[in-house]
């Protein structure tokens, strides 16, 4: 998800700050993992993605949310924060249940504080995916998968 320079919308620096705040909030529960937050917007609404991941990418859990903010009393910035708030709440629940609360892999309707939003998430292993790509491309690095 790329982030264009848009007035009054969250910047890359804002997202980095959000990621670090989330790291601090859940520090005792992260187990060598960390958060990466990003936001975007288009004519349909505002999108937010917060991934919980480790350094190698063998654990990569992106949670994505979107809201058609024009249907609610939100500007784009507030909508982005609304989504990140919701994802933060989700991760609180996720850690509480020891990682046993997963989301549907395709967009699903949710409601929070009277606002409809959509959410999806999928646990990925980027390390294995990279090796698989290498294997398919005939690269020797992919041989580890054999």
């Amino acid at each position: 998800m790329t982030l264009a320079k848009q007035p009054n919308f969250l910047t890359v620096e804002d997202c980095a700050e959000i990621s670090q705040l989330m790291d601090r909030k859940f520090a005792g529960l992260l187990k060598q993992r960390y958060f990466e937050a990003a936001v975007n917007k288009d004519s349909q609404g505002v999108y937010a993605k917060v991934a919980l991941r480790n350094q190698s990418g063998s654990f990569y859990y992106p949670v994505e949310a979107r809201v058609a903010h024009m249907n609610h009393d939100f500007d784009e910035r507030a909508a982005a924060f609304f989504l990140i708030d919701y994802i933060t709440e989700y991760f609180a629940e996720y850690f509480r249940a020891d990682g046993d609360v997963f989301l549907p892999i395709d967009w699903n309707e949710y409601e929070w504080g009277g606002v409809s939003l959509q959410l999806k998430g999928q646990l990925l292993n980027l390390e294995v995916e990279r090796l698989a790509d290498a294997l398919l491309a005939g690269d020797s690095a992919g041989d580890q998968l054999r």
């Binding site: 705040l21 601090r24 909030k25 005792g28 708030d85």
Partner: peptide, 20 residues
């Protein structure tokens, strides 16, 4: 809302809890 209420505002509470 996030930095002032949900996270930053919350951070003192989180640190106050002592374990998270």
């Amino acid at each position: 809302r996030l930095s002032e209420e949900t996270l930053s505002g919350d951070l003192a509470g989180i640190m106050d809890a002592g374990h998270q």
